[in-house]
């Protein structure tokens, strides 16, 4: 578990970083925490931008392009796996001017190291027909509230708007996936059987005589396909929320997250993250991802700590 800080432990250079031209010592490891990542090439760094949910206004993108064009020695950017835009081949001697120019257009630099990272997210309910939660809004909130908060090791969050889970919440330290609890009203139902055809989970059978649905909540993954397909609004949303997953990661030793809450409402997401960070900081060892802390300390300890937030977000179908 020592692979994350080996580079440049001793590398210190003299460079102007305060914008005034005054030379001062900087530590490449400090740079990394600020979103500057050393490249193979001498003196060249990658500048990672802070783009919660992978979203940028076209206006800002145009301005970023100009800055990237000016400072990338190769004139290239890279779309990172966590939805940030990275300006490659930037000379460290130009950091202060790059940051100042980015600041001018309201673009911040991201981070690396043991802290809460920029959240990732899919399109969510804003424009994706499958979306159940406003993932972009949530990612923005989490970024504003928690970005850079120190933790024992990196802490990655993501938001998927539906069970297709494009934002891979099962691989996050803490992931939130949108769900909807379907509710059926007999009076409005015409027995057309579309819902049982629309359900990809085999959770709805049709009564052979009436055509009306026979619902199996155990098989339901709360995607809302029945609600969207129903021609007469007999299937309605009872409530929306997030499945909360904890302790996932990818990397050398991938771990799948465990489900810790099934219907957390939007307004409790902030509390859940705050409480989780508190528990992680109290129980995690330096350099240990929260999934491994859970393995070592036990999930019960975490769930007990989270009771005030999770207790009313009961199981679906209740």
């Amino acid at each position: 578990m020592t692979d994350h800080f080996i580079e440049d432990k001793t590398t210190k250079v003299t460079v102007a970083v305060d914008g005034t031209g005054a030379a001062q010592k900087i530590d490449f490891n400090d740079l990394k925490s600020g979103g500057f990542i050393k490249q193979r090439q001498k003196d060249l760094f990658t500048v990672r931008l802070r783009c919660p949910g992978g979203r940028l206004s076209t206006e800002k993108l145009v301005e970023i392009s100009k800055i990237a064009h000016k400072y990338s020695k190769k004139g290239v950017v890279h779309f990172s796996f966590r939805q940030s835009l990275e300006i490659l081949y930037v000379d460290y001697k130009e950091f202060s001017t790059v940051v100042a120019e980015l600041e001018k257009i309201g673009q911040k630099v991201a981070s690396c190291g043991p802290r809460v990272r920029v959240p990732t997210a899919c399109g969510g309910c804003e424009y994706n027909p499958n979306g159940l939660t406003d993932t972009q809004k949530m990612a923005d909130m989490v970024d504003k509230t928690f970005f850079g908060t120190p933790t024992p090791h990196k802490f990655k969050t993501s938001f998927s708007g539906c069970p297709i889970d494009c934002a891979r919440t099962k691989e996050m330290d803490m992931g939130f996936q949108g769900v909807v609890d379907p509710k059926w009203e007999e009076e409005a139902c015409t027995g057309c059987t579309i819902c049982s055809e629309a359900c990809k989970e085999d959770a709805i059978a049709s009564d052979p005589d009436t055509g009306k649905p026979i619902f199996d909540p155990i098989k339901c993954i709360f995607c809302g396909d029945c609600i969207r397909a129903c021609p007469t609004e007999a299937w309605k949303p009872k409530r929306y929320g997030h499945i909360v997953r904890l302790g996932g990661k990818h990397g050398r030793h991938p771990m799948e997250a465990v489900e810790v809450c099934q219907f957390l409402p939007d307004e409790k997401v902030g509390d859940a993250i705050k409480m989780t960070i508190d528990w992680y900081n109290a129980n995690g060892k330096r350099g240990e991802r929260i999934g491994n802390t859970i393995k070592r300390v036990g999930l019960e300890s975490y769930l007990k700590h989270m009771e005030p937030v999770f207790q009313n977000a009961a199981k679906a179908g209740a």
């Binding site: 027909p129 015409t190 057309c192 059987t193 579309i194 055809e197 629309a198 990809k200 055509g211 396909d225 969207r228 397909a229 021609p231 007469t232």
Partner: peptide
């Protein structure tokens, strides 16, 4: 049945049209 019936009715609804009858 299958993919078409899973997808087309919900897209028709999203366009604002009304499905008034369904027969299998």
């Amino acid at each position: 049945s299958g993919d078409p019936i899973q997808n087309v009715p919900k897209s028709i609804k999203e366009e604002g049209h009304k499905i008034v009858e369904v027969k299998k």
